[in-house]
Amino acid sequence: MIAVGITVALKEILASFGLSGGLLSVVTYAILASATFGLLSVLALFLVWWERKIAGHMQQRFGPMRNGWHGWYQTLVDGLKLLQKEDVRVATRDKVVFFWAPVMCFIAAFAAYIVIPFGDGLIVADLNIGILYIMAITTFTVISLLMAGWGSNNKYALLGGMRSAAQVVSYEVPMVASILVVVLYAGSLSTVDIVNSQAGNFLNWNIFRVPYGPLAFLTYLVAAIAEANRTPFDLAEAEQELVAGFNIEYSGMKFAMFFLAEFINLFTVSAIAVILFFGGWHGFEFIPSFVWFFLKTFAVVFLLIMIRWTYPRMRVDQLMEFAWKFLVPLTFLNIIIAAIFKHFGWYWEL
């Protein structure tokens, strides 16, 4: 385990150039933020391409094939195309809200990465309220979707925005409740502490700790799909019902921002799943920790993509019933079970 995190190391390097005090912090975090931003942008581009490839192969076709080997830079040229496109704005829009909605969505998607450890020590800031912070910041997405729906001055968009608000607020409860199970065990909200509590043998991962692990993971996964607005819970942009939902009036780069944010969110929920249930960066020592982290996260992403291209969409009332009548009681029950097991020490530590 690296004793000092990347932040500390970077600070030391910068301090050797003579920076100090407030300026040192600002420069350090600016560098880290740009690095994270760059990494995530590439990641989002990759995820878009990857999803299209998987979807293609699931559907008896190849997906993008033209640009490069198996179309590897397809999303890049798609992005360039979107960048050049005219930014069509409806005359009747709410100017301020319409403009800020995609920006906010984008920021909310990226801000969560402050506390996500990509590897041993590879974390921007190890906040002691890490998980709580992620929950709080990702909820901003819903506000931005609602803003997009309202600001577009379009009935389909409004319906989409309202749907996503109702959906995300409902699924926040089972999501937090399933996370609480892990927090209960780890005794900390910090992401690094949670990962370290699963160190050692892979049987220490929360998913394998009887009996609350698998159940908490499943309920988390369901809620996470709903949070990421993906099929079977993609009601906010249900193409066949609401045409494109909240982003119906967005074009060009504003649309691209929503689109990229969606894929960043996909990666976020998968990364959180790995941190909480799959032991984060831990694995066999001879492979670097960040490789483990990415491998595990991509495995979860793969699962989510498979789910998306397999299931039909739920109806909005069924979605709500499922959240409040099934998931919420189940997760609460799970917390109680986990608490009992924790109290009597009925879990292993290998």
């Binding site: 993609d234 249900a238 066949q240 291209w309 397999t310 039909p312 969409r313």
Partner: peptide
């Protein structure tokens, strides 16, 4: 029908 209910994949199977 499958596509309208949200499952996109059966559409391509049917077209195949």
């Amino acid at each position: 029908t499958a596509m309208d209910i949200g499952a996109l994949t059966p559409f391509l199977y049917a077209l195949r």
